[in-house]
Nucleic acid binder design. Structure first.
Lengths: 242, 242
DNA sequence: CGCTGCATTGATGAGTGTCAAAATTGGTGG
DNA sequence: CCACCAATTTTGACACTCATCAATGCAGCG
């Protein structure tokens, strides 16, 4: 049972830019279906030339890049509203894989209509490029984290980012949000070993900055955590979605 | 004295997708001037909301992100054909600074006409998004490098990437290309200390894999270097430019 | 109730960072 | 043409963060 775009769950959240009625009508034509996946399911594979692109409607996942050595680098975490498959759509090949970490519902688009999309709806193309620019911005910040921050700073930074993102999406209640990731995911995202990540998380808990256990992250003083991370807390902006 | 777009130096290089005559005519209207800068000149500042966007016509530079701690992370290296200011154009704020490392000539566009650009020329908007996707792809690879590769692998990887990029642009002669960067730049790009970078570069030279001195990089066996870096050598694709 | 995946803890050492100083290079002015 | 200065490269010694190895505990699950 496919949700009509006019009832799109994303368009109801106020962390997203509202779509106009016309835009919704158009997206309805562009949308070819809906995909529901279980935790652990691969959605797009690195190197693949996928015929389908997605927008996450609900649930969480990860983007990860596999190396020849068998290790992997987590590029970032996927939240509702994220567009999945930009690289496949434009370059014809994904630079990373995407995998579900919770149950997810995805809105499915056809890659073949991608160019038409650009041609007929420049404001939507603009939105897509906006998302790409935002991603570039974020990856630059991540690069600075892995390259320059200590393990403690890096993990604090990651927790701040995740918490803020979750907060904007209404996933935070009582200073607490669900985190479906494993410590290995976080370790791979920050270029740290699993053991050291575990010990560093322990340190954050000892200092009462961030407490993460049982898939649940609690942060009482976000500013204090941001201070440890040497980051500025900035209000989230409304994002477009595709 | 401003070059006419029909004589654009980028359009003559065959590593770029040729622009149609109509596209050139349009770009001519979009182009508002040309900027020549000396080495060391800041082109765009992190956090700024620049009114102008650029395409590098010649010369090289770096993108760098400054941290509150005074350290910096080099995001990547700027080559001819690179678009500069995507984030300013779309997000209204740069996530990093851009600085010249050689003399550079830049093609200047007005940010205010950016949206018009999208609206009237979807194929050019498509190209811009293509570049953004390519950047995202590259940053993902860089993330994997900093996060997962050893210092030796990382530096080998960086040399391979730079050499390939230079090669595509016709900057390589006799297995040698000019490198206007400092070891500090490379260290900051890979999250390594200057001293360790220096010693590791020495190791690559000892092993006759890559020899960089006097601003000049020589690589005789690129495949061998790529093997050390644990990367695949892939043929460069034709890129669009703006 | 024995798997299997994940979290946790302790011990040890390698890979890098940091500190300090010398060598080299390039530019500038006398 | 030389003297001087700043920036960069190079080297050596030492410290420390973080990776690796190895076990144990714990929970979910067929």
């Amino acid at each position: 049972m496919t949700t009509l775009c006019k009832y799109c769950p994303l368009n109801r959240k106020d962390s997203f830019q509202k779509l106009s009625k016309e835009a919704i009508d158009y997206m309805q034509k562009f949308k070819v279906g809906e995909l529901a996946v279980d935790p652990g399911t691969p959605i797009l594979m690195q190197g693949s030339n996928a015929p389908q692109l997605f927008t996450a409607l609900s649930g969480m996942g990860i983007r990860e890049r596999h190396l020849a050595t068998g290790e992997k680098q987590v590029i970032n975490f996927v939240f509702p509203g994220d567009f999945i498959g930009l690289q496949a759509g434009l370059l014809g090949e994904m630079g990373h894989s995407v995998e579900a970490r919770t149950q997810m519902r995805l809105c499915v688009f056809n890659r073949s209509e991608f160019y038409t999309f650009f041609k007929n709806h420049p404001e939507r193309a603009f939105d897509l490029t906006w998302l790409a620019a935002m991603e570039e911005h974020f990856l630059g910040e991540t690069l600075a984290t892995i390259g320059q921050r200590s393990a403690l700073q890096a993990i604090a930074w990651a927790m701040v980012k995740i918490f803020q993102r979750g907060s904007a999406l209404g996933m935070v209640h009582n200073n607490t949000m669900e985190l479906p990731y494993t410590q290995r995911d976080v370790a791979d995202a920050l270029g740290l070993s699993l053991v050291h990540t575990n010990k560093t998380l322990g340190k954050l808990k000892d200092r009462q900055l961030a407490s993460w256990s049982d898939r649940s992250l609690q942060i009482n003083d976000l500013q204090a955590l941001a201070d440890v991370a040497v980051t500025e807390l900035r209000p989230a902006r409304k994002r477009p979605f595709i």
